[in-house]
Structures are given as structure tokens and as C-alpha cells.
Nucleic acid binder design. Structure first.
Lengths: 339, 339
DNA sequence: TTGTAAGCGTTATCAC
DNA sequence: GTGATAACGCTTACAA
């Protein structure tokens, strides 16, 4: 009885001896349809577990009610919160979500973006990867008048809404906290400096040092390639050997923990000898010993806001948005700066 | 010139004064098309950055070349490796991937599964959530002859291929390692016991104790709700207070680390007083002090295999597969059992 | 109250 | 070589 694939309105129409349009109308609760007909249709639809074909609907309506997410990593507490924020907002507005993880690869980002350019999604939320320097794929997206919103790692060359964290302010706060803790020789270890977010965190660091009248020492500044644990433990080797620093602002929690490990191994005590502030508030920071002072990153809010801006644009294509929304970070004090 | 949305073959046909069929053929490199025509079409297509409409193609071909993934969590090193394995296999076979993260919620799993039942994907890879006990949504999927493959947390009630880890063997190995280390009072702390994987790990534990002639002590056995850090630190409180155990097999690395934290706080030394084996080989296990002995989980291979089985079924719907593929875990020795 | 037909973008099957 | 035309599943004027 039931076809191999799934049931269509045609099947229902056929079985009931009526036309597909009537079936369609009945299912849409169109009041024109005779109650008896409607009921018959609905019963059969239920019996066969009818579900409207997604692809046909998309083609018909010229919209997929799906938004795409281009994101560099999945196993990442911040990004994961962003995704949850996006999903929650999207679902409650009737949108689905396709996630493409680029694994920080430019090539993958290009492939994934182009795969979404052909009517698969109604709009795109993107966080550019560490290795991206050419933005043509995003430009092509935007040129088709497909709504596009950047979050966190943005692309300045494109005129679309952006949601960012005030990384400058956060870097400033983190460093100032070290100053207040009594540090005078404060090092900086951060992620790839080609990324705006890292330039900003570093900028905040410099401003705080400057304001405190502390000198900037080039040998205490490391821009790492990845922001990972290994980079962190490597980055501070020289400073540790020289016993030269008493404070460290790390651009990620993993850098911070890598650095702490190296320092502990060298016999330094944290926070007594060196106070450390990380960035992102990863859960490992509460587990590690000492627990890690860090800057919060409101990922959920960022995701929600980005989704909101995107869906606004999808629903209202003429009113072009180009604003940048800025979220703020907060200091979370734990043992690594508790003197 | 260019339409607001994106360019279609109709636009190209119109501009060139030829028919859509010719354009379609030219783009498909059909040898019947006159070279000059083909070139003209291709040039215009390139100029306008033509991309075939995904939705139209899907409807036409009755296939989306997309596979869905239902997975309980994203921020999870094992699942993340599974996803990478799936993605790599899928991409290299011309498939795209839609990921739905259920956040271990049954409701979300039902919604997400049903959202993929309507022709959106050609098949589904699923790992059932901790809270799922009713499998009707998956059954509905299977009843439509949509290919379905389970991985890791499987559903036995459905007759479809499955890819699993030999959790029993792994639990056995982990416990046996503790025995070999010299432990005689070995506790078990694991995740939700309604999940088959946890029953198996626990089963392996019991077998190893049994073989070693060690007694099973009920007060040393804890089935936690989540498998998280907090559960871990809570679970061992009594045993620690009683100073009763000298070995611990934890069903997840986070449980292990939570437990270690509690024990360290109570003045116990790891591994001297209590040796600990975790499960899953999360990266935190290399960073934590002491570094954690654990069981590997070949997530990438699992993802690849699951994707392979699924795509095999999609490409060959008649040959129904129902086998279960079993992967194996390996012991990774680190400090937490080094005596 | 219901049916017919057009159309969303594409390709395959016929004609010519 | 190329052009109509039908079809994928659905909705919606328009007709009846």
C-alpha cells in the first residue's frame, strides 16, 4: 500500500479520489474545505505518517528556513555556547541550522561556504578561521544578497552586521587586574596576531601597562600560532629561565595552563611567584590546580544576537543592517591571581 | 543585469537566446552540444558565478546527497572525532553533512530526528541520548526505508547496522590493569547505567574482579547520572572517608578527575594510595596532575565506519545491512597508575 | 467546495 | 545540435 519512499499528497489524493489541491488545502486548515473532507484527509495523513517534503517546500517557497553556520571548531566551549545560542534562537523562530566546522582551515572554509551558496540556506553566520586572509568566498555570498552575519572573528572588508566581544576592553581588564594584584613585570602570551581579536587583547594589555607606568618588554611578549596548551608551555620557557616575570596575561585558557605547567615544573609557585590570567572561562579552569582566573566570553548571548540579526535580515531583505554589536567580558577571579 | 537572487540556467538561456535544455547540456559537458555554444554558456555561467540550485537538484534527483547526524553533545572529544571521521568519509564521497546536537535531551532528539525525516537527508547516523528510552522516532525513520546507522549508543530494537566500541572488553582491560598494578580493593564509578555502554564497562569490571578472585563490594560501586566532573567528585566521598579503596575504574575521564580531586583533597596520593583508570582518553588527561591512565576510544574510525555503512546503504538500498561492527579500545598508561 | 494549471530550477526524453 | 515538454512535491490563483 504505502510507497517505498514516503507518502505524498498525491498518494492521499489518489486514495481519497480527490485532487491534490484539496489535500493541500485540507492539511493547511484552509476553511474553504468541507469539514468531512478535511477530516478524511487528516486521518489518512496521520495513518500514513505524512510529512511534507522539505525539498519541494523549499523550492516552492524559495526559502529553506535553514541558516548555515561556518565555525572554526566544535570542541571548544566558547563556540559551543555560541552554537547553542544560535540554535535556540533559530528553533524558536522556526529555523533549522546547518553547522559546518572548518577545523581552522581556509580551504575547508571556502568549500563549506560555497556549498551553502546555492540556495541551501537562507543566510549564513560565520566566524572566520585563523588561517583565512582572503575573503572572496564571503564576498560572493554577500553579492548574491544572501544575508550574512559575522561573529567573533569577523571580516572587516564586508559590509554586514557583526557581533563581537570587546576584546580590547577585556585584555585591558585582565592586565589591570594583574597590576592591582601587585605585578610589575607582566608578560603577554596570545594567539595568532593576524586575528583582530588577538590584536585587540594585546592592545588592551599594552594600554593597561602604559597606564600603570609599566615598561613593555619585548622578550615578555609571545604571539603563538595556535593558542593551544603546547604553545603555552613553550612560550614562557625563556621568561621562566630568566626568572623575569611576576605576572602573565594569556590570550586563552589553554595557553595559560600550558604556561603554568612549565612554570610549576621550573619550581615557580602560582600565584605567589607569578600571577596568571587566562581568557574564555573554559571549564578546565575550575578543575586545574590552581584554578584559573580568566575573562568570561558570553558565547550564548553572542550566538543569540547573531541569529537575531540574521533572521531579521532574512525576513526583511530590503532593510540592510550593517551595525556592529559589541558584547562585554567580565573578570572571573580564582586562585591563579589570589595573593 | 544580474537578478536579485542568483542566476539560473533560464537567465543564461534568455541572454544567449537559446533554450534551457541546451544550457543544461552545455554545463554538463554533453558532447552533443556545439563547442561554440558550450563555450558561450560556460563563459556566461562563469561571469555570473552560476551555481546550480541545490534544492531544485534535490527535488529532481530525489536525493540530497546529505546525511544527517544526531549526536548528544558537541563539546566532547570523542564525539568530535566521530564527526570528523564521518565528515571526511562523507565529503570524499560527495556527501554533505547536517549535524544536530540533542544536548542529551530526548525531546530534542525526537524533534531533530523528525525534522530530518522529510526528505532533507538521504540517511541518518545516530547516537542516542542518555535520556532516551522510547525509540519510535527512529522506528518511523527506518519504516520509510531511510537508511539509518547507529554508533556508540545504539538502539537494539531497530534492525539496522551499528558501530560500537567493545566496552565490555575495555572495562575488563582497565580493571585488569588495576589488578596488575597491585590493587585489591577496586571501586567502580560510571555513567548512567541505563546505557548499554555503561552496562558493558561495568560488566567488564565485574569479570576482571571475578577472575582475579576479588570480592565485589556494593559500596564501592556508583552509577552516576551524568559522567561529569561533579558526579565524579561526589561519588567517591564515602569510599574516601572510609579509606577503603586502593584502585578506581571510572567510566569517563571526567569522573576520574573529579574523583581524584576529592581524593587529593582528602590527603590521598594518586597513584600511591589509589590508582585510577579513566575512559575515553580526553586531552585533559595529559594535562592534569597526575596525568591519567585511560582507555582509548577510536572515534575517528567509528565515524568513518558508520559513514561508510550508511553510504553503502544509500547507494544500494536493496541490500539491507544489519551487521554490528565492533571496534576495540586500548589501554593508555600514564601517571595515575604508575607505581 | 473542489479541480485545473502554473510555477519553483533542474535534467531526461523525446522530437525535429 | 537544439528545443519543447514532462517530471520531482508542493502551493495558489483562477475556474468551475
Amino acid at each position: 500500500m504505502m510507497k517505498k519512499g514516503s507518502v505524498t499528497i498525491k498518494d492521499i489524493a489518489l486514495e481519497l479520489g480527490i485532487s491534490v489541491s484539496t489535500v493541500s488545502r485540507a492539511l493547511a486548515d484552509n476553511p474553504l474545505v468541507k469539514p468531512a473532507t478535511r477530516q478524511a484527509v487528516k486521518e489518512l495523513a496521520k495513518k500514513y505518517n505524512y510529512r511534507p517534503n522539505f525539498t519541494a517546500l523549499s523550492l516552492r517557497n524559495n526559502r529553506t528556513r535553514t541558516i548555515g553556520i561556518i565555525i572554526p571548531q566544535l570542541v571548544h566551549e566558547f563556540f559551543s555556547m555560541v552554537i547553542r545560542g544560535i540554535e535556540d534562537f533559530a528553533y524558536s523562530n522556526g529555523y533549522n541550522v546547518i553547522i559546518s566546522s572548518t577545523h581552522e582551515s581556509y580551504e575547508r572554509e571556502v568549500i563549506d561556504t560555497k556549498a551553502l551558496i546555492n540556495g541551501r540556506v537562507d543566510g549564513l553566520l560565520a566566524c572566520v578561521s585563523k588561517s583565512t586572509t582572503n575573503y572572496d568566498h564571503f564576498k560572493e555570498f554577500a553579492e548574491r544578497n544572501l544575508p550574512l552575519v559575522f561573529f567573533d572573528c569577523i571580516c572587516d572588508e564586508i559590509d554586514s552586521p557583526k557581533v563581537v566581544l570587546d576584546d580590547f576592553e577585556a585584555g585591558y581588564q585582565a592586565t589591570q587586574h594583574l597590576v592591582e594584584t601587585g605585578c610589575t613585570q607582566i608578560a603577554y602570551v596570545g594567539g595568532p596576531i593576524n586575528l583582530q581579536i588577538n590584536q585587540d587583547r594585546f592592545g588592551g594589555y599594552k594600554k593597561a601597562l602604559n597606564e600603570a607606568g609599566l615598561a613593555l618588554n619585548e622578550s615578555w611578549i609571545k604571539h603563538c600560532e595556535t593558542g593551544d596548551y603546547d604553545d603555552g608551555s613553550e612560550s614562557v620557557r625563556d621568561m621562566v629561565a630568566a626568572r623575569s616575570i611576576d605576572g602573565l596575561f594569556a590570550g586563552t585558557d589553554m595557553l595559560a595552563i600550558g604556561a603554568i605547567k612549565t612554570m610549576k615544573k621550573a619550581g615557580l609557585q602560582i600565584p605567589k611567584d607569578v600571577a596568571v590570567v587566562g581568557f574564555s572561562n573554559w571549564s578546565i579552569g575550575t578543575i586545574y590546580e590552581p584554578s584559573l582566573t580568566t575573562m568570561s566570553q558570553p558565547g550564548y548571548e553572542m550566538g543569540q544576537k547573531a541569529a537575531e540579526l540574521l533572521i531579521q535580515q532574512i525576513d526583511n531583505p530590503d532593510k540592510k543592517l550593517t551595525d556592529t554589536f559589541t558584547l562585554h567580558s567580565e573578570l572571573i577571579q580564582r586562585e591563579s591571581t589570589q595573593r
